[in-house]
């Protein structure tokens, strides 16, 4: 299928049960959706399963798409919901979204030593050590290139909160880098 066919048209054709359109949409968005999930849930296997669930939802619910956001933002919103749901299933007794978002995730992350890795690699490892909330906003801004208003809708927070969350995510990243021996001179 022609790469220039807009996402919205693919969604319309998927709503009409067009599997070719479904394949085109999947090829176009599978990698970004998977990487977003990978950033959130960390497990490659779980991210892959959740990405499959996202596109299966698209197949089943394409008729519900109302073009209030771009298709890519809609996909990431579904993916985010799937990831949060997986967290709840994982720890139904203890999961507290508010607390979980604040706690930096330091588990299964290798110790960072600048004597062993490059500056670029150190930064990548430090991103992994950010809280889920901070990793998410950094990923949405830098990799997915989402606008402030799009992130605001996705996360369900005011636009000013998006700006300050990004600021504090960056600030925390710099602090983690400094703790690892890489002082960027900010903040």
């Amino acid at each position: 299928m022609n790469d220039t066919v807009p996402d919205e048209v693919l969604i319309a054709r998927i709503a009409a049960r067009d599997q070719t359109a479904m394949k085109a949409l999947y090829l176009r968005h599978q990698t970004r959706t998977y990487r977003f999930l990978r950033r959130l849930v960390k497990s490659a296997e779980l991210a892959e399963d959740l990405a499959g669930d996202v596109f299966l939802d698209v197949w089943r619910q394409a008729g519900q798409y109302e073009a209030r956001s771009s298709v890519s933002t809609w996909l990431l919103s579904i993916a985010r919901f799937k990831a949060l749901s997986s967290f709840r299933r994982k720890a139904p007794e203890t999961f507290d979204p508010e607390t979980a978002e604040e706690i930096a995730d330091e588990s299964d992350t290798p110790e960072i030593s600048l004597q062993k890795v490059s500056k670029a690699k150190a930064m990548r490892l430090c991103i992994e050590r950010l809280s889920r909330e901070h990793r998410e906003v950094i990923d949405l801004v830098y990799y997915h290139e989402k606008k402030i208003e799009e992130i605001s809708v996705m996360l369900g927070v005011p636009e000013n909160t998006v700006k300050t969350r990004m600021f504090y995510a960056r600030k925390r990243l710099s602090e983690i880098l400094r703790e690892a021996g890489l002082d960027r001179g900010w903040p």
Partner: peptide
């Protein structure tokens, strides 16, 4: 930060062909 974030995301690679096959088998079944 932006450059390293993009590189970090790209290091995640892409979902496997197995995942794609599983998805479209489910779709075909429906």
């Amino acid at each position: 930060e932006m450059a390293e974030s993009v590189l970090a995301a790209e290091e995640f690679g892409a979902p496997s062909l197995r995942a794609r096959d599983r998805l479209f088998a489910a779709i075909e079944a429906e």
